[in-house]
Amino acid sequence: TRVETATETAWISLVTALHLVLGLSAVLGLLLLRWQFPAHYRRLRHALW
């Protein structure tokens, strides 16, 4: 049971790290898009909202 718990903890930390990385890359990508294509971003936002 001790090994299982350790594996579970490792998986949880791995998944958390993955989610953090994905979230950060998504935010960075959005910022980059907004910085590179302001007109396109505004049009996209206008279409979405």
Rank of each mutant, 00 (worst) to 15 (best):
R43V: 09
G23A: 12
L20G: 09
L18D: 02
V21F: 13
W11Y: 12
A10F: 03
L30K: 02
L28A: 02
L14D: 04
Y41P: 04
L32H: 08
E4M: 15
A17D: 01
Q36W: 13
R42W: 10
L22P: 03
S25T: 13
L32K: 05
A39W: 10
V21D: 02
A6C: 09
V21W: 04
P38V: 09
L18T: 03
W49T: 07
T7K: 13
R45I: 05
L28V: 00
W11P: 06
A26N: 00
A39L: 14
L18F: 13
L32F: 06
E4W: 10
G23R: 00
S13Y: 13
T7V: 13
H19L: 01
A47Y: 09
V15Q: 06
F37M: 09
A17G: 07
H46R: 10
A6M: 10
T9A: 11
R2P: 12
P38C: 06
P38S: 14
L28R: 00
L44P: 05
L20S: 06
T7F: 09
A17R: 05
T5W: 01
R2L: 13
W35A: 15
L24P: 07
L32M: 08
V21N: 00
F37L: 09
V27W: 10
T7G: 10
A39S: 13
A26S: 11
T1W: 09
S13A: 14
H46V: 10
T7P: 11
W49N: 15
L22M: 10
R43M: 11
S13W: 15
A39D: 15
W11K: 05
L28S: 02
T7N: 10
T16A: 13
R34P: 07
L31A: 14
A17E: 00
T7C: 01
G29E: 04
L14Y: 04
G23M: 12
L18R: 02
R43A: 12
L18M: 09
A6Y: 07
F37W: 07
A10G: 12
L48T: 08
S25H: 06
E8P: 09
A47T: 09
W49P: 06
R42K: 15
T9D: 08
A6L: 09
T9Q: 12
H19Y: 02
W11N: 05
T9S: 12
L44R: 03
V3G: 00
H40Y: 08
S25M: 05
T7Y: 12
L28H: 03
L32T: 07
V15E: 02
T9N: 10
H40I: 07
S25L: 07
E8I: 03
T5I: 01
V15R: 03
W11Q: 00
V15K: 05
A17M: 10
R34W: 05
R43P: 05
L14W: 00
E4L: 11
L28D: 00
A39I: 11
V3F: 07
R42L: 12
L28C: 03
T5A: 01
R43I: 09
R2G: 10
R42V: 11
R45W: 00
L20W: 04
G29C: 13
G29M: 13
F37G: 00
Y41T: 11
P38D: 15
F37V: 07
E8W: 01
I12Q: 08
H46L: 08
A10W: 07
L44W: 08
L33M: 11
F37R: 04
T1I: 13
R34Y: 08
L22Q: 03
A6T: 14
I12M: 09
R2D: 12
Q36L: 12
W49M: 06
F37A: 06
H19C: 06
V27E: 01
L28G: 00
R42F: 08
W11C: 07
A26E: 03
A10N: 07
L14K: 01
L20K: 00
R2F: 13
H19A: 04
G23H: 05
W35D: 08
T5H: 01
T5E: 00
A10Q: 13
A47W: 09
T16H: 04
T9W: 14
R43K: 12
L31W: 12
E4V: 13
W11G: 02
T16G: 07
L14P: 00
V15Y: 07
L33W: 07
H19G: 03
R42I: 10
R34F: 01
V27C: 11
W49F: 00
R2Y: 13
E4F: 12
T9K: 12
Y41N: 04
Q36M: 15
R45H: 07
A47S: 10
L22T: 11
A6N: 09
A39H: 15
L14M: 10
H40T: 09
H40S: 10
L24Y: 05
T16D: 00
V15G: 02
S13I: 13
L48C: 15
T5G: 00
V15F: 04
W35V: 15
I12V: 12
R2M: 15
W35M: 15
H46D: 10
A10P: 05
L24C: 08
L31E: 05
A26H: 07
T16Q: 00
T5C: 03
T1R: 10
L24M: 13
H19K: 01
A26Y: 02
R2K: 13
L30S: 09
V3Y: 01
G29R: 03
P38Y: 14
E4T: 11
V27R: 02
L31P: 05
L31Y: 13
L14T: 04
Y41A: 15
H40F: 14
P38I: 10
S13E: 05
R43D: 09
L32N: 04
H19I: 03
T7E: 05
T5N: 00
L22I: 12
I12F: 07
L30Y: 07
L48V: 12
L48S: 05
W11I: 12
A47Q: 09
E8M: 00
L18Y: 03
E8D: 10
L22C: 14
W35N: 15
W35Q: 15
R42S: 13
R43F: 09
T1M: 14
R34H: 06
A10Y: 05
L20E: 00
L24Q: 06
L44I: 14
S13C: 13
S25F: 06
R45E: 05
W35L: 15
W49A: 06
V27H: 03
P38R: 15
V21G: 06
L48I: 14
Q36F: 07
H19S: 02
L24H: 04
L22K: 04
A39R: 14
E4D: 10
L20D: 00
R45L: 07
V27Q: 00
W35F: 15
V15S: 02
S13D: 06
S13K: 03
L14G: 00
L14E: 00
T16P: 04
F37N: 09
T16L: 10
A17C: 13
L44G: 02
V21P: 01
W11L: 08
P38Q: 15
T1S: 11
W49L: 06
S13G: 13
H46F: 02
R43C: 09
H40N: 09
S25C: 14
L18Q: 05
W35H: 15
V3H: 00
Y41K: 03
